[in-house]
């Protein structure tokens, strides 16, 4: 397995460091204080390779908190809110794209 640190990193825009929480799999984001949050709004936003590498190295050393940390694209929407930068990250952040409520079938 290639360590995230060995992967070629190309940072084209804004990114956050994201992972899944070890104990329950929840999607988490790295905060400025070196912690983790499930709220994207609280994530540390980066835009250069060096700090991304530094955060990933830190995260890799905390193996009992987060699994599979990587840099994910984010953008600011029209209201200046931080939102995920692609469909995969939108789904990770907000869940499946259809209504999960189960309704009785039409027959």
């Amino acid at each position: 397995m290639t360590s995230p640190l060995d992967q070629k990193l190309r940072i084209d825009g804004l990114v956050v460091i994201t992972a899944n929480r070890l104990r329950d799999g929840a999607v988490i984001y790295r905060t400025a204080g070196g912690g983790w949050t499930t709220d994207l709004a609280g994530a540390l936003v980066l835009d250069a390779v060096a700090p991304v590498k530094a955060e990933l190295a830190q995260a890799a050393g905390e193996g009992t908190l987060a699994v599979g940390a990587y840099a994910a694209p984010v953008v600011h929407d029209a209201n200046g809110r931080l939102v995920p930068g692609n469909l995969r990250e939108i789904i990770r952040s907000s869940g499946p794209t259809f209504d999960l409520r189960r309704v009785p079938a039409e027959t």
Partner: peptide, 8 residues
Amino acid sequence: TYLQLHAY
């Protein structure tokens, strides 16, 4: 047991 996008 897999780790998927949102959960195990």
